[in-house]
Amino acid sequence: MTEHIDQTAPHDAGEHHDDGHHDVNYAKIYVALLVLLVISILGPELGITWVTLITAFGIALVKATMVINNFMHLKWEKNFIKWALVVSLLFVALFFFGVAPDVMKHDGLRWVNDAAIASVERGIEPPHGEEGEHAAEDGEGEDHAEEGDDTTVEGEGATETVAAAFSAPDAYSATCATCHGPNGGGDGPGAAALDPQPASFATTEFWDGVTRESMVNVIQNGGAAEGLSAAMPAWGALYSDDEIQQIVDYVETFQP
């Protein structure tokens, strides 16, 4: 990079020792930039895709080149500076093309990105503001709407049959048994890792301390919602209110 520089004598650090001033008519370039700006705004108004792309990005490139060359004086700069900047851009391009097969595409050899496909199909929902200001104002309501989205996506992944064939025992063994145990004894395989230990539904102490509302709340919003262990996840995204009621019914069968 620096090998060609002959520097037998130390250079003076003069502020502008190589280039006093460049004969650039800055005003002319400024006007040209403004004209290009106007074109880049008007072009897309025609609504033709290729015109939009050329006027938007082609002109952005031209404008950027003008600024870089004339305002930043890169035109007069040493070559290795240009190289350094181009190489950094090339690495960004490398990153883009290396990642595109996995992230930009939504399916490939032996994999499908269900969630992304679902999100394309779902499209953009109108903002909460369109339906009623209060929904947007209300933070809680917003969270809930997003969790509603989750359900749709999960539904796509697992296909409708799962949702149609909801059964509380299946849901319990798929979701809860990991920690709470297949028979509600709080002795599932995940229990060993947890502190505090997951609740055992087979003890009377447990049933003395809860109400049906609190159980629904914990399943829906997680243990933290009732001041219990944060390790208990919120399942409100996965199960509807009705389904949660059924799960609670099933859990009650463990009651001693």
């Binding site: 620096t2 520089i5 250079h11 650090a13 003069g14 190589d18 040493k78 290795f80 500076i81 350094a84």
Partner: peptide, 17 residues
């Protein structure tokens, strides 16, 4: 800081990097 072996003043070289 006052040396300039690369031929570009130190400050400007740093800004480019």
């Amino acid at each position: 800081t006052t040396r300039s072996a690369s031929g570009i003043p130190t400050g400007r070289l740093a800004i480019w990097w």
